[in-house]
């Protein structure tokens, strides 16, 4: 069976959930071979093997952390040359897309970004994408070279599928020309203790209607009662009420949770672009004409400062 390279997104060996989704999708087209760069390969290998990786190619070099993106392209290219895979899959993160794009140029292949589903086809993998702010669904494939495809989080449910996951060292030479962009400093983001926005099963977002940073705890309290992540519209972010890392939409995160709750958000096209593929959508807005209501499974026309706290109390009461 043909091998499929899967680029591993991890933090010191802790594999992030989108990578497990990639392994599940990769098994539809071939045998997943994971490429793990940086520290923690042994820890990662256990998880990767549980989800179907037949092999884990690993390399660690200071250059991966000291320079932006390009050294990782060198490493992925080395893996590509070692394996001659049927496809290369990467997570649709900023870095995943950049690495994939540069690899595609180097190996003379086409690239598809932001797939939301993937199946085997007669002429290679077929990728489903959601375009024009999720108003269209397309199916595409790559017609030249080895398909390089980046996949959005929440595109598949990770499945356990135990495989060997044999760890092998990958020989990587980082080119001088790949050391162009120095990472002078790196400040890790502080954890909020809440689930990651793009991975969460439930997201509760607040918009301009929240009317001030001091009111965002109202949104956070609902999120915490449901075990949800917190999102924000760009209006709320631009006003400085909530960090940009929590922005949902075209220029923020794209989320596709089981449940999305929008409070005080009008539902502009750029916001919809980042949440329209959520399974169930709920909105609370005092304006019955707000476009967000066109999307909802359940909507409440009312003041969020009345409805949200009441909902939070009710959730807590029911959960006991």
């Amino acid at each position: 069976m043909a091998e499929v390279l899967v680029y591993v997104d991890h933090v010191d060996g802790a594999v992030r959930k989108p990578t497990l989704e990639l392994l599940t999708l990769a098994r539809r087209i071939g045998e997943p071979v994971a490429v793990h760069l940086g520290p923690g390969a042994d820890t990662a290998a256990t998880t990767l093997a549980e989800h179907g990786a037949v092999k884990v190619l690993t390399a660690d070099a200071p250059e991966f952390a000291d320079y932006l993106v390009a050294p990782k392209v060198d490493a992925l290219q080395a893996a590509y040359e070692a394996v001659s895979p049927a496809a290369v899959l990467l997570p649709s993160s900023t870095e995943g897309k950049e690495i994939g794009a540069r690899l595609a140029v180097r190996i003379g292949s086409g690239i598809i970004t932001d797939a939301v589903d993937l199946e085997a086809g007669d002429e290679g993998p077929v990728a489903t994408q959601s375009v024009f702010a999720a108003s269209y669904t397309t199916k595409s494939r790559i017609t030249k070279g080895t398909p390089v495809i980046t996949v959005k989080p929440n595109s598949a449910a990770p499945e356990a599928a135990p495989a060997a996951g044999t760890v092998e060292q990958l020989a990587v030479t980082v080119a001088e020309s790949s050391k162009g962009t120095k990472v002078v400093s790196r400040t890790p983001r502080e954890s909020t203790g809440r689930p990651d926005l793009t991975e969460a099963a439930i997201v509760v977002s607040g918009g301009r209607g929240v009317n001030g940073a001091e009111n965002f705890p109202v949104i956070e309290a609902l999120a915490d009662s449901l075990g949800a992540a917190v999102g924000a519209s760009r209006a709320a972010v631009d006003a400085g009420w909530y960090p940009h890392t929590n922005q949902v939409g075209q220029t923020g995160k794209s989320v596709s949770p089981q449940l999305y709750i929008a409070a005080g958000i009008s539902g502009a096209i750029q916001h919809r672009a980042g949440m329209q593929t959520s399974k169930t959508i709920v909105a609370i807005n005092k304006d019955a004409e707000a476009p967000i209501f066109d999307l909802v499974d359940y909507g409440v026309v009312g003041d969020l400062f009345e409805v949200v706290p009441a909902l939070t109390d009710e959730v807590k009461a029911r959960k006991g």
Binding site: A288, D297, Y298, V300, V301, G302, E306, V307, A310, V315
Partner: peptide
């Protein structure tokens, strides 16, 4: 979807739906 107007029970109704 279902859209209701909050007449004091909006939060409860939403919880019921969820």
């Amino acid at each position: 979807g279902t859209i209701v107007k909050d007449e004091g029970e909006g939060g409860k109704q939403l919880a019921e739906f969820l």
